[in-house]
Design a protein around this nucleic acid. Structure first.
Lengths: 236, 236
DNA sequence: ACAAAAGTGTTCACACTACACCCATGG
DNA sequence: CCATGGGTGTAGTGTGAACACTTTTGT
């Protein structure tokens, strides 16, 4: 073997370095539709155009930390569920300079969203069925995030991150329908939910969205572990 | 709205920049087992330890271009099937410096692999069941790549990228078993393949791996399009 | 009393699983 | 002639899809 051992200096120095950004696709659920949080880009080029929330990664920050920082800045919430989508690195994807961007999607509880923040950052919750054109490759990021969300939501019980602890079955079904963009049969849906036995039914009802009222449920972490331990897998 | 428009200079300048690498998880199939291509790291720190193939992204290169460059360097093949796994950006993931790495997995045809390259780069095909400890977070990358590969291979007909055009059904089954790491029933497997009607059976046999010989098949792109057009989905 | 949404079971079709024997050939 | 791997069908089970009426309550 004629392998040469290089000095680290030769290897790490004199290489190109890049700006790295974290862009967030922030999903929320309201009015029976899936929405994402968009803002007007505050900087040239393309100032004023619709854009995802983003920020540059700094020296002593992981990619996830950078994304969390962006999420906290725009929502003031901590512990938001977040997952990496992909890295985007086309040479001219950002016309303002060479920037490699890592996209994350996040699920936020819209009940506890501070609407004053929307004002502050000129941000709005936009129905995913009415997405405008976004800057750079942000539309592609949203598309990829949606694809991933649809997959994940069908395989893992992450959907409960959209709700503030308790939720009704009709609301849960509406949410799945909003994510998959297709109707789901009510009886089959409830049958499947019931068969997993991972929810606790509460004694109280949500009487706001109907006269009769729908019972609240909560996700039971422990029951879910038992469910997994029995060799079954979440699937919806 | 009290949104300030920044000048691009303020926005893009004076931000941290990073070395960005593309690391490749190169999968190949031989001896009825899935293998990945590993090399001895040629540079300090950790020179001589097992490592994935990687390279730094340069100025006028996309992430995909950088990964392709790495793949071509180590395999001398072009048009290799490749897909992004994830970006890895923990602050101290590379102990030689701050490097953000984007992992790609690739599927190569081992029949046409030039073994002299293995010598040149001190590279070896290692059975995935016998993976050594790799440098940095490369083991995690391989794990993530395998998870993604298992999913993709079950949903899209990418598995044929492991073969040099033609292949036998026993070999195809062996490959699925190697990827999923579990036995598959021969009759059920063949029934499902047949029901999709996306392969063409050739008149010739592979007589090397058995006395009787197994018929060769080729993937038929057109039949696959018809299959999709009929509203069905690939699943294996 | 009526409108509006919540809640509840059964049937049917299809897909997945399990399973055992004969065939072709080289040595 | 025998050892080795290639090739073939059927029956049973479970899962997903279709489908309609009763209940509750606010107005």
């Amino acid at each position: 073997m004629n392998n040469t051992i290089f000095m680290a200096d030769q290897y790490y120095l004199n290489k190109s370095t890049f700006l790295v950004a974290a862009d967030c696709i922030v999903f929320g659920f309201k009015e029976k539709e899936l929405h994402i949080l968009l803002t007007r880009r505050p900087v040239e080029p393309l100032a004023g155009e619709w854009s995802l929330m983003g920020g540059f990664v700094s020296e002593n920050e992981s990619l996830e930390d950078a994304a969390k920082k962006v999420l906290f800045e725009y929502t003031q919430q901590k512990g938001i569920y977040m997952e990496q989508v992909n890295a985007y690195g086309a040479v001219d994807r950002d016309i303002g300079g060479r920037v490699i961007s890592v996209a994350f999607y996040a699920l936020v509880r819209l009940e506890e969203f501070d609407t004053s923040l929307a004002q502050k950052f000129d941000a709005r919750w936009i129905n995913i069925k009415e997405l405008p054109q976004l800057v750079f490759d942000h539309n592609k990021m949203v598309e990829d995030a949606l694809t991933l969300l649809r997959f994940k939501v069908s395989m893992q019980p992450i959907i409960f991150n959209f709700f503030d602890e308790k939720f009704t079955l009709p609301a849960l079904q509406d949410l799945y329908e909003a994510i998959y963009q297709r109707p789901i049969d009510k009886r089959n849906f409830r049958k499947k939910i019931a068969s997993m036995n991972i929810l606790d039914k509460l004694d109280i009802k949500d009487t706001l969205s109907s006269k009769r009222g729908a019972f609240y449920y909560v996700f039971n972490e422990e029951k879910y572990r038992d469910f997994l331990a029995s060799g079954k897998f979440f699937s919806l």
